[in-house]
């Protein structure tokens, strides 16, 4: 089949394409993990959902351990209960995902935050941990 090679570009068959996709995804995962664990010195932690900043539990220079509370957010929680969408306002605390040190506090209580937009806390994490 003269055009067989051309038909699947760099891959000889779908089997090769499947294996290449497995390698590509593994490579992406490794790059992201190495980047976050060893290359990025600090991360700006942003709100994971829209809400109002209620309290910041840490101060600049504080050492934090994985699981320590960083800040709390007043959010509207939406949940289906008995096939009805229930909305209630709740205050949720968010914790550190890795050991590290607080470099900067950017938010202040009362700030209205948009998901993934404003930085609340800048955290320097220990090398080799995933913030």
């Amino acid at each position: 089949m003269s055009d067989k090679k051309k038909s699947l570009t760099v891959f000889k068959s779908d089997r090769h394409e499947d294996v290449a996709a497995i390698f590509a995804s593994a490579l992406i995962v490794v790059v992201v993990l190495v980047y976050m664990a060893f290359i990025v010195p600090s991360v700006g932690i942003k709100a994971s959902q829209d809400g109002k900043l209620v309290e910041i539990f840490v101060t600049e220079g504080t050492d934090v351990k994985k699981g320590d509370k960083l800040y709390s957010l007043e959010v509207v929680k939406k949940k289906w209960v008995n096939n009805v969408m229930e909305e209630k306002v709740a205050v949720e605390s968010f914790t550190a995902k890795a050991n590290g040190k607080v470099l900067k506090i950017s938010g202040k209580p009362g700030d209205a935050l948009k998901k993934g937009k404003q930085t609340i806390v800048v955290l320097e994490h220990e090398k080799g941990t995933l913030p």
């Binding site: 994971s48 995902k97 993934g116």
Partner: peptide
Amino acid sequence: IGAEGSETLHL
């Protein structure tokens, strides 16, 4: 591959 809610998983 990182805890739920972490910046790693976000990325």
